[in-house]
Design a protein around this nucleic acid. Sequence first.
DNA 1: TATGAATGAGTGTTCATTCAT
DNA 2: TATGAATGAACACTCATTCAT
Lengths: 209, 209, 209, 209
Amino acid sequence: MAPTSLSRPASTRHPDSRFEQRLAQILQHATAVFYEKGYEGASMRDLSRSSGMSLAGLYYYFESKEKLLYLIHKHYFTTVAQRLTERLEEVQNPEERVRTFIFNHLDFFLANHKAMKVLSHEDDVLERELGAEIAALKRQYYHSCSDLVEALKREHSSEFNTRVAVLSLFGMMNWLYTWYNPRIDPGADELSRQVGDIFLRGIRVPAAH
Amino acid sequence: MAPTSLSRPASTRHPDSRFEQRLAQILQHATAVFYEKGYEGASMRDLSRSSGMSLAGLYYYFESKEKLLYLIHKHYFTTVAQRLTERLEEVQNPEERVRTFIFNHLDFFLANHKAMKVLSHEDDVLERELGAEIAALKRQYYHSCSDLVEALKREHSSEFNTRVAVLSLFGMMNWLYTWYNPRIDPGADELSRQVGDIFLRGIRVPAAH
Amino acid sequence: MAPTSLSRPASTRHPDSRFEQRLAQILQHATAVFYEKGYEGASMRDLSRSSGMSLAGLYYYFESKEKLLYLIHKHYFTTVAQRLTERLEEVQNPEERVRTFIFNHLDFFLANHKAMKVLSHEDDVLERELGAEIAALKRQYYHSCSDLVEALKREHSSEFNTRVAVLSLFGMMNWLYTWYNPRIDPGADELSRQVGDIFLRGIRVPAAH
Amino acid sequence: MAPTSLSRPASTRHPDSRFEQRLAQILQHATAVFYEKGYEGASMRDLSRSSGMSLAGLYYYFESKEKLLYLIHKHYFTTVAQRLTERLEEVQNPEERVRTFIFNHLDFFLANHKAMKVLSHEDDVLERELGAEIAALKRQYYHSCSDLVEALKREHSSEFNTRVAVLSLFGMMNWLYTWYNPRIDPGADELSRQVGDIFLRGIRVPAAH
DNA sequence: TATGAATGAGTGTTCATTCAT
DNA sequence: TATGAATGAACACTCATTCAT
C-alpha cells in the first residue's frame, strides 16, 4: 500500500516504514467504522475509539477526514486493479477474460466486503481534486471491463448496448453489499460462475440482419 | 400519499387537506436535498432553505428528520408497489410478467430518479420500528419479483439459484442511480427491454440431466 | 378567585363568568404541570396537553407563561390569607392565635399540596411588577404571623429573635413539600399540633435578668 | 473533591491534577450560575460565559449538564457529611451532639450558601442512577441526624414523632436560603444556638403516663 | 372563543480540527 | 510520535409567542 500524498514530507518516508504500517492499521479500523456508520455518520471520535489512538494523534497520519476516505478508496481500487492485471496476463480466451474480471472483482469484494461497501456507498462524497483522482481510477477500471466485453462482442458478432451491459454487470456485482450473506450465499468461485452465466448468456445476442 | 402517524390528531385531518398538500411539497424538497447531500450530510437547515419554510416550521409537519426519511421511503415504495399490482393484472404470460416488473421498476425509477437514489442509498439508516416497517415493505416487493421469476423458472424447467438471480436483477436496476444519464442512455421502454433481455436470456438454463 | 389584570377588557367580564371558570380550570391544570416539572421545566405545550386546549387557545386566558405563574401565586396566596383572617376572628388567646395560623397554613398546604410546592419552589422567578406584587403579598402574610408571635412573646415576657423564630416556623411548614407523605404522616390536625408544640415550646424562653 | 466518572479514562488522572483543578473551578462557576437562575433556567451558554471557557470546552470536563449538577451535589454532600463525622468524634453528650449537627449544617450552609441553595432547590431534577446515588447520600445524612435525635429522645424519655421533628429541623435549616441575610441575621454560631434552642426545647416532651 | 400554522431565538450537544507540549 | 486541552461552527430540535381566521 503506497499512499501518494501524506502530511509528512516524502523525503522522510521510506517504503514499509513504521509510518506506513501504522497508517495501514488506521485505514483498516477506519474502513470498519465507515462500513458501520457511513462516512458522514462516523465521527473522528469513533475512529479514535476504534483505532485506540487519540483524536489528535490521528491527524499525524492524514490531514483530514476526507483525505482518509480518499486513502481508503485509493488503496482498494489500486489493489483490485493490480490483481486484475496480474490475472489477465494468464488468460487469452475472450469469454474467459470476462469471467476473470468478474471473478477477480467478486473474490476481492467478498474478501474485503467492508471496504467494498464503503467504496460503493461513499462514491460521490469526495470533492475536487481528490474526487477527480478517484473518479479517474474508477473510469479506468470501468474501461478495462468494457474493453473485455467489446472484445467478446466482436468475437460473437453480438449486438447490444455495451455501456448498458457493462454497467448492468457492475450493478449485479456492486449491489452485493446490500444482500450478500456468507452463510447462505455461494462463495466467490460459485458466485462469479453464476453471475458470469447470467451476464454472458445474457449478452449472447446474434446480430439481426 | 397518506402518511400514517403525524403530530396532529388523525381526527382533525381529512384526505388531501392543505396539511397533506403542504407535507407532500416538503417531502419533494427534502427528497431533492437528500439526493444531493445524502441523509446524514443534509441538515435540517438545508431542508428549511430548500423548502422556503422556517426550520421550526418544518417540525409542524413531521416530528424528526428520521421520520421524514421514513415518510419518503414509505410514499415511494407504496406507490411503486401499487402500480406494479395494477400492471400485473393485465399480463398473464410468465416471461411478460417478469418484463412487466422490470419495466414498472425502471419506469418509476427514471421518472423519480432523485427519490430512487435516496431509497437505494439510505437503505439502512432507519432504526427500530420505522426501519422494520420499511424493511417489511421491501421484503414484500422483493418477494413479488421472486415469485414471478419462480413461475418462469417452472415453465422453462430451468435450473439456477433464484435468490442470486433476483438480487442480481435488482442490482442491475438499482445501481442505475450511479450512472444513468438521460442524455445518452435509452428511455424506460428501451432500457427495460435491454435489461430484460440480459436477465431473461441469462436465466434460460436448461436443467442438466 | 378574582384575578385582577387579564388580557380581556374588564368591562366585558362579570364575576364567575364562563371566562373566569375556564381560567380557573386552566390554572388547576397548570399548577399540576408546574408541580411535576417546575416552572422553567414545563413548556406551554405541556400545559396545552394537560388542559386539553390548543397552544394558541391558552393565550386567550393569560398573556404569557409568567403571567400564568403570577395568577397561580396570587390566587393561592389570596385564598390562604383570607381564610386566615376568617379563622382568627374567632380566636382571642395569643397562643391559640399562633396555633390557628399554623393550622390554617398546614390545612391549606395539605389540601393544595401541588400548588404549595409551586408557591414554595418558584418563589423568585417572577420579575419586576409581577414579582413585586407577589412579594408584597408574602410580606404581608409574613407580618400577620410575626404579629401573632410578637403578641405571644409579650404575654410570656419571652426573649428571642422574632425574625429567626418566625422564619424557622415558615421553614418547618414550607419544607413539608419535600417530604410529606399522606400515607405515613399525620393529617393537618395532628401535624399542626406537633409543629405547634415544637415551635411554641421552643420559644417559651424566660427573659434573662 | 473526587468526581467518580468522567469522560477521560481514570488511569490517566492523578489526584489534584490540572484536570481536577480546572473542573473544580468550573464547578464553582456553575454553582453560582445555578444559584442565580436555577438549574433549568441556566443555559450551558450562561455557564460558558461565567467560566470564561468556550461552550464546547466545557464538555471536556463533564459529559452533560445533568452530570454537572450531579458533581455539584456529590461534592457538597460528601464534604458536609465528612465534616460532621469529624466534629462528632469529639462530642459525647446527646444534646451536644444534636447541637453539633445543627452547627455543622448551618456553618457549612452559610459558608457555601450558593451551593446550599442549589442542593436544596434542585433536589429532584437528577434522574435514574444519578438521582438514586444522590438520594442515597441524602438519606444517609438524614439518618445520621435522626439517630442523634433518637439518642436524645431515649435519654430524656421524651415522646414525639421523630420523623416529623427531624424533618421540621431540616425545614428550619434548609429554608434559610430563602431569607438569610448576612447583614442583619446572626452568624453561624449564634444562629445555630437559636435554632438549636427552639428545636431542643421544642422536643423536650415528658412522656405522658 | 379557539385554533392551525408558523416563526426567531434559543436549547443541549457534537462536529472536525488545532496547537502547545 | 502522540496527546490533553480547547475551540468555532454546526447539529437536531424545542421554546414562548403570534396572527389570520
